[in-house]
Amino acid sequence: MSEIQCQVANIEPLTDTVYKVELTPSSPMSFKAGQYILVHMGENDKRPFSIANAAWDNDRIELHIGADEGNAYATEVLERMRNDGTITLSGGHGEAFLKPNGKPMILIAGGTGFSYTWSILQEHLHSNDATPITLYWGGRHADDLYLADELTALAEKHDKFTFIPVVEFAHDDWSGRTGWVHHAAMADHADFANVQVYVAGRFEMAKVVREDFTTRGLSKDDLFGDAFAFI
């Protein structure tokens, strides 16, 4: 897969530790919703990040990069982008892209794993496919769900879309769902036999989703996530 040189168009904070990066590739990059790019930091140092924009919107690349002080892996990428104003990447990579088959879709996102589901969601809402799609997005705190207002508005606009935010450590003014994000999905679905599930987040979460959802009838052929290539 060929390398693409990108101009860094913008870097802005979404939270205290998450940054939205907008890149302008030298030519539109072909990818599928749900795939990722590799940022080329060196010949043997290529770092994956999910593409946040939809595949039809391919004259730009949007990334959501979580980069707190303890995460050198990501902060080094941001610093390279800020200092150089350009970055080399390749993509799209990965086999966990959107594969609609008529079954209702459930998206499970933890933290910045949301960027993976955001690409899939935008692609589906842009299509004429009326298949229902539900996004469960979990964060430690309500402020971690940085596009919650936009997602709520989209759910009001599109009958086929349901948004369910889940907060692990909620303040008293939180009136939504609490706890682990995949438990919220399990509370709503006793049987996963007739749905597709797309999941992104920590590998530990993806592993538990696979174990718990397949126990409730989910076929592994209907379970998608980049983590499953490694666990």
Rank of each mutant, 00 (worst) to 15 (best):
E3P: 03
I4M: 06
C6Y: 08
Q7P: 08
V8N: 13
A9N: 05
E12C: 11
P13F: 11
T15W: 04
T15A: 06
V18W: 04
K20A: 11
V21D: 03
V21I: 15
E22W: 07
P25I: 14
S26A: 10
S26Q: 15
S26W: 02
S30L: 08
Y36D: 09
I37P: 00
L38K: 15
L38T: 00
L38N: 12
P48Y: 01
N53S: 06
N53A: 09
W56Q: 10
A67V: 01
E69A: 09
E69D: 15
Y73C: 06
T75V: 08
E76K: 09
V77I: 12
L78Y: 07
R80A: 12
R80V: 08
R82K: 14
R82I: 02
N83Q: 05
D84T: 06
D84M: 08
I87D: 05
T88E: 11
S90H: 03
S90Y: 01
G92N: 00
E95N: 11
A96W: 00
F97C: 12
G102N: 12
P104M: 15
M105I: 13
M105W: 06
F114A: 04
S115Y: 05
Y116K: 06
L121A: 02
Q122P: 01
E123N: 07
E123Y: 04
H124I: 09
L125R: 11
L125D: 08
H126Q: 10
S127E: 04
S127C: 00
A130W: 00
P132H: 13
I133E: 10
I133R: 14
I133Y: 07
L135N: 02
Y136P: 00
Y136T: 04
D143Y: 12
L145D: 08
Y146V: 04
L151M: 03
A153I: 02
K157Y: 00
K157S: 08
H158Q: 05
D159T: 00
T162W: 10
E168S: 11
E168C: 05
A170S: 14
H171N: 14
D172M: 14
D173T: 15
W174V: 13
G176Y: 10
V181D: 12
H182C: 11
H183C: 04
A185E: 13
A187F: 14
A193V: 02
N194P: 01
N194K: 11
V199C: 13
A200V: 00
R202P: 04
M205L: 15
R210D: 03
R210P: 05
T214I: 02
T215H: 15
T215W: 12
R216L: 15
G217V: 01
L218V: 15
S219T: 14
K220G: 03
F228V: 00
F228A: 02
I231G: 06
